[in-house]
């Protein structure tokens, strides 16, 4: 229990919040549209790559580049929902889930190939001009604290939106019972689009926040997808609250594993940890059936 322990814990919490942002979008989309979006991590990369390209090539100011990145990401997710996933919605039940999984996998492969061949050097790193703080003998990077607070604020906002606003209630009702929601006059099509846009917005925020604490490479999309999916599975795939908890757990565990046994083996250990967790609680740590 020394100084670096606290710093690793902070690292882990920030990473966990980022994972929660990714997984919250996945959960919402899966709950409402019945599509497990395997292209979610690539959406994150679209945002960072767009921003990085704008910054590197035509010197756009940083905030503008980030806004452009978010907009491009949201536009791609609208394209995904309206064009790519069109055949999926004609199916029902397990067939729909399977085809949705497959088509988004194909879409993510397509995006991955396109991104790494066209912009192989579009790494995004944002250096916030804030000093490091000395706090009880520890050197804490302020940027990290800011990112942590920012992602927590976004997550709280999402939670409040789902809990209290009319749109949030409509989304929750569609997730629970599509037919019932339709009868009381909630449009599935409209909220499906909204949820996809919301998911893309959250994931692009996650990308931006990630690029403050680390560099986001154009090929790292699949990694974020898988981590996000693992968070979803651990959190119970229908519960946003569960994904937030699971994101924190996985973020902290993963960071400590990286510190103690190295990056490559950390994945192996993380997967074993998750397997064990799922054998004890097969429906996630919050325990909702899916």
């Amino acid at each position: 229990m020394d100084a670096s322990f606290v710093l690793f814990l902070l690292d882990g919490i920030v990473f966990g919040l980022i994972l929660s942002l990714i997984a919250a979008g996945l959960t919402l989309i899966y709950g409402l549209a019945g599509v497990l979006n395997l292209a979610h991590g690539e959406l994150l990369v679209i945002c960072t790559v767009t921003a990085a390209v704008l910054l590197q090539s035509i010197n756009v100011p940083l905030p503008l580049a980030l806004v452009a990145g978010v907009l491009v990401t949201v536009a791609s997710s609208v394209f995904l929902e309206k064009v790519v996933l069109r055949p999926v919605y004609r199916l029902e039940g397990e067939e729909r889930i399977l085809l949705g999984l497959y088509i988004t996998l194909a879409f993510s492969i397509f995006l991955h190939g396109a991104l790494i061949t066209s912009f192989p050097l579009a790494f995004l790193t944002i250096n916030l001009p804030v000093p490091s703080l000395d706090f009880m003998g520890l050197t804490v990077r302020t940027a990290q604290v800011i990112t942590g607070v920012a992602s927590a604020a976004v997550l709280v906002a999402v939670y409040v939106f789902l809990k209290n606003s009319w749109g949030g209630m409509a989304i929750r009702s569609l997730t629970q019972n599509e037919v019932g929601a339709l009868i009381v006059g909630v449009s599935v099509k409209r909220y499906r689009l909204i949820v996809f846009m919301l998911g893309a917005f959250l994931v692009s925020l996650a990308g931006i926040i990630r690029s403050v604490v680390a560099t986001v490479a154009p090929e790292s999309g699949i990694e974020f997808t898988i981590l996000g999916l693992l968070v979803c599975v651990v959190g119970g795939i229908r519960s946003v609250y569960g994904t937030i908890v699971a994101g924190l757990v996985i973020g902290v565990v993963y960071t400590f594993l990286v510190v103690f046994i190295g990056t490559y083996l950390a994945y192996v250990a993380l997967l074993i940890f998750i397997m064990a967790l799922l054998l004890v609680r097969p429906y996630g740590i919050v325990g909702e059936r899916w």
Partner: peptide
């Protein structure tokens, strides 16, 4: 790879 992704998408659709 881009082409593979596109093919797979079209095939599935």
């Amino acid at each position: 790879q881009v082409l593979y992704g596109l093919t797979l998408m079209l095939l599935l659709a």
